[in-house]
Design a protein around this nucleic acid. Structure first.
Lengths: 197, 197
DNA sequence: AGCGCTGCTGGACACGAGTCCAGGTTCTAC
DNA sequence: GTAGAACCTGGACTCGTGTCCAGCAGCGCT
């Protein structure tokens, strides 16, 4: 690894991080993922993540005010870093919408533990988490609008946004299996965008 | 008041509550509402609610394992107790759906504080809260299915459910004003059920 | 009236989260 | 190479949450 000067994702933690700080933050978010997979969200604490990252708890707390903040940051980084293929207007609006929604939902889908954890963490009413939620909501809206262009009303986009929120919520609470998401979202898109055929 | 023998709502706390216990639980849920309105959700604790209800904290903890459980119970009781007018098939499916969804969303709408609190509380990953969520989800599904009958596909109902989850979520996180819900839900219903005006 | 059971009391306790700070370590500029 | 700044360390501290238990009170039964 030795990712000394690599371009780390934009930090949503504090403005103006030095390289050194960025690296510390990066170690923490990476450690958080591992911790999530190995011990699960409930057992995860800022302290254990700090330990795994080889960093003092107090240091971790200077960047992340809570475990929710830490986990939400993981989601944000992945979502932001996600590659967005250019819109292909030959495909139906519903198909395009499904792509965006799935991209969003599956950012963390490799590991189900991570997925559920992130969803729950995103709901905390922590100022840092609120900020991340806003950014994520905004970015999702942009990606949806861009993919759909004039093919969708504002109401349709709102509905899609509500539906994806609801879907993640239900996954987070365990009422919906992560594996069921693709079909469900495809259905929703088709319905909302009245896919011809 | 002296509500000695009145029919209190079904308790989702423990099975087989004696009259005396039911009364204690009732005092607690009422006190929780007042507490929410007066000091807000973050400041609410099981202890303060117990105090307001004139009950020892330990007693409160025998019925509610956490403040989330307590608040979620408030929502459940109100939703369950809600009167459901018989389905009027002369109205459009979209209008019927909107009614059900609004009824759900506005159970606690009188006081915005309560609304936001409930939404957040519902998300806790507490076994008691999970149970309440299941019940609520089921009851909502029943009411929707009943109101729509054969006028809606399973996909449409799923979409409506996702949308209402998402809407409450966004309210809970402060990204959506409670007042905006009626219009939004009406839009969604119209779109999903292709209201032929 | 007296007995017994059920439910409530209240205070002590364990535990974990988040804060704070004085001191040590690493980086940067000269 | 050295000074100074920026950053990290580690351990102590506070505070709130949820648990536990020994004793007390209220209610139904005889």
């Amino acid at each position: 690894m030795s990712s000394s000067a690599v371009q780390l994702p934009t930090a949503a933690t504090r403005r103006h991080l030095s390289d050194r700080q960025a690296k510390t933050v990066h170690k923490l978010t990476e450690a958080a993922v591992v911790e999530l997979i190995e011990v699960g969200y409930p057992a995860l604490t800022v302290r254990t993540v700090a330990k795994r990252a080889g960093v003092a708890p107090a240091t971790a707390y200077t960047y992340f005010g809570s475990k929710e903040h830490l986990v939400a940051e993981v989601f944000w980084r992945r979502f932001e870093a996600q590659e967005v293929p250019p819109t292909d207007r030959r495909r139906s609006p519903a198909a395009r919408a499904t792509d965006v929604l799935l991209g969003f939902a599956l950012v963390v889908a490799d590991e189900t533990e991570v997925a559920a954890a992130v969803t729950v963490a995103m709901l905390a009413d922590d100022p840092e988490v609120r900020e991340l939620r806003s950014r994520i909501g905004l970015l999702l809206h942009q990606r949806l609008s861009e993919a759909l262009g004039d093919d969708a009303s504002a109401a349709a986009i709102s509905t899609l946004e509500l539906a994806i929120s609801g879907a993640l919520l239900q996954v987070g609470t365990g009422h919906l299996a992560y594996g069921a998401i693709p079909d469900l979202l495809a259905q929703v898109s088709a319905l909302v965008l009245k896919d011809p055929r």
